[in-house]
Nucleic acid binder design. Structure first.
Length: 612
DNA sequence: ATAGGGTTAG
């Protein structure tokens, strides 16, 4: 064909244009003409080409066949793994190579390693490498420092990012963008905005970083505001990165109408087949409790990756459609998509909901044995949940005691919640005491504790928990429920509402109360503080925030429409019973999203099958 | 005449 350097140039074009198939042809040509024998130059460029184009398999094959690997080969193979969203693999390969082959990182390798650490939140590893980097002869390299800024920003430590940033001699738009993202993600809006104002260089990516950072930092409304301002200024913001972030924001806020609006924007801009955008849409519709819309998006996708499958599986599982989640997992395997750690959290969670203990255990083992994935604390928590829900409390406790992690609050709470359901009072109290000693940080845990103690008639402990909770609520946010009517969203707090429609709400709740009592409802006041008068206990239950929200929803929505309520705490047992009965009385579907799952109340039943 | 750093999904 042509001169060797002409071919090299063509390979570089393939990298730029992301033409892996053309690149592969050039690769074959290089092999035939024997250029590759002259050193790693061609191999490394080809390696990099495969990595950047997402052809990890080809990259690995080439890497394995290379007779002479230099530092650039290692840098390229690390980049390939980072690019394929396998940062742990990069760190694994590096640690193996550094011990077996005494691989000493150069500046290029340092940058890929920090990139990997950022990708999997490997703070400890990153810090060690940072120390090593400072002592190395590359310590002045601005690009590596830039990758460190990104690493600390992604790990939620913007101040550490800033101190590295300050040491950068020539600050370009890349390090500014990373730093702004870091502050936004940490929820430090004013600092992020101040930085943006002071940036000598900013581009659309900087704005994207700010918007997505704020979304991830939970400041979704601020983020939407900034997006609107940008559009008003006439900025060209119709790009999939920003759209994905807006979808994430709608999901976080669980605001279906907002999500639909963004979806329309996506269609208007012609990004409805973008993989990232679709994945975000699946998640958004599931989180906004419109699972059929999520299914529709998933069904229409031409190309699905592991995130698409995982999103729909998790969505199904959270909405109580465990068997469908499991069968989707089978289909995913048939489609040749490899599951990752998140996928397994989803399906083990599904098993735990359907009471499929054996299946869940099998999947957990399969994750380790067949897929070589290391279980995380979250996976063990799922396993604890799986056993505990099926009444195998001892087995669940065994896992907590023997797993290679210190159980956190969520892990204990999972076991505790099943003790309440299974009537295992003694062990429940023991766990509760332990949790109370640890000092729970979650209001939901407190409700659980208070329930356990109330069932065991340990009133002193109950009031201790209540006091703790009151102090937490003062510091944090109190319990509330929102009802989403599309055009408006109303928030209700516990206690008698001061809403302008108070009388109508009270009237309807009273009427419904009378109707369900006719059907055998007896308020379960065991969950309320003991030292109140009986009537006062019932009154407290009556004014739980989700009930006010429900009444308002019933009054204001179209007849027959589903009512969607979001609650920031767990639904109490009594409200759960009441919602089941009311779904029957009004003949509508009532959807409640509590702190971590969905309840679809319909025809007197709930999708969670009374396990939550 | 090779290679590295910033923004998106679970």
């Amino acid at each position: 064909m042509n001169h060797p350097f002409e071919i090299l140039h063509q390979i570089k074009q393939c990298i730029k244009l992301r033409f892996p198939l053309e690149g592969k042809k050039l690769h074959a040509h290089v092999v035939k003409s024997g250029f590759g024998l002259h050193g790693p130059l061609f191999s490394n460029t080809l390696l990099y080409m495969y990595g950047k184009c997402g052809f990890l398999k080809d990259a690995l094959q080439l890497f394995d066949e290379m007779p002479h690997r230099d530092l650039a080969s290692w840098a390229s193979i690390f980049t390939s793994h980072n690019h394929a969203n396998l940062p742990q693999k990069t760190l694994f390969l590096y640690s193996a190579a550094s011990s077996k082959e005494n691989l000493q990182p150069d500046d290029f390798i340092y940058a890929t390693l920090f990139n990997a650490c950022a990708g999997c939140n490997a703070l400890k590893v990153g810090e060690q490498l940072h120390a090593q980097f400072i002592a190395s002869s590359f310590a002045d390299n601005d690009v590596v420092k830039s990758s460190l800024v990104d690493f600390y920003a992604k790990c939620g430590l913007p101040d550490r990012a800033r101190s590295v940033f300050n040491s950068i001699a020539l600050k370009n738009v890349v390090c500014w963008t990373s730093l702004i993202y870091g502050y936004a993600k940490a929820g430090r809006k004013s600092e992020a905005l101040a930085l943006l104002r002071n940036t000598p260089c900013k581009n659309l990516q900087t704005w994207t970083a700010l918007i997505s950072g704020l979304m991830q930092g939970g400041l979704c409304l601020d983020s939407f505001k900034i997006f609107k301002e940008l559009r008003l200024e006439g900025a060209y913001v119709d790009e999939p990165f920003i759209l994905s972030s807006l979808i994430v924001g709608s999901a976080t806020l669980a605001m279906l109408e907002l999500g639909k609006q963004v979806h329309r924007l996506v269609i208007g801009f012609g990004y409805e087949s973008n993989l990232y955008v679709c994945n975000a849409l699946i998640d958004m519709y599931a989180k906004c409790s419109d699972v059929s819309a999520a299914e529709m998006i998933f069904g229409n996708m031409g190309k699905r990756d592991v995130v698409s499958w995982t999103s729909i599986i998790v969505g199904m599982a959270q909405h109580g459609r465990a068997l469908e989640a499991l069968s989707l997992y089978e289909t995913m395997a048939l489609a040749g998509v490899k599951p990752n750690g998140v996928t397994f959290t989803g399906i083990i969670y599904a098993c735990s909901h359907a009471g499929l203990v054996e299946k869940g255990r099998h999947l957990f083992n399969s994750m380790v044995v067949d897929h070589g994935l290391r279980p995380s604390l979250q996976h063990y928590t799922c396993l604890v949940d799986l056993y505990a829900r099926s009444g195998l409390i001892e087995e669940a406790k065994d896992i907590l005691d023997t797993m290679p992690f210190t159980p956190d609050e969520a892990a204990w709470a999972s076991l505790l919640s099943s003790c309440c359901q299974g009537g295992k009072k003694e062990i429940g109290v023991r766990i509760a005491d332990h949790l109370l000693e640890l000092g729970p940080e979650d209001t939901s845990t407190c409700i659980l504790l208070s329930n356990v103690y109330a069932h065991a008639t340990m009133w002193e402990q109950v009031s201790k928990v209540r006091k703790l909770m009151a102090s937490m609520e003062r510091k944090k946010k109190p319990g509330y429920s929102c009802v989403d009517l599309g055009k408006e969203i109303q928030v209700f707090y516990a206690g008698e509402t001061e809403h302008p429609m108070r009388d109508e709400i009270f009237g309807l709740l009273k009427e419904l109360d009378a109707e369900i009592r006719k059907r055998g409802y007896v308020p379960d006041t065991s969950l309320v503080l003991h030292d109140l008068q009986h009537q006062e206990k019932e009154r407290q239950l009556f004014w739980h925030s989700e009930r006010s929200a429900l009444a308002y929803g019933l009054l204001k929505s179209a007849p027959g429409a589903s009512i969607r309520i979001m609650k920031n705490l767990r639904v109490c047992g009594d409200c759960h019973t009441v919602f089941k009965l009311i779904s029957n009385v009004v003949g509508r579907e009532l959807i409640v999203r509590d702190v971590n799952r969905f309840h679809h109340f319909k025809d007197g039943e709930c999708s969670c099958q009374d396990f939550w």
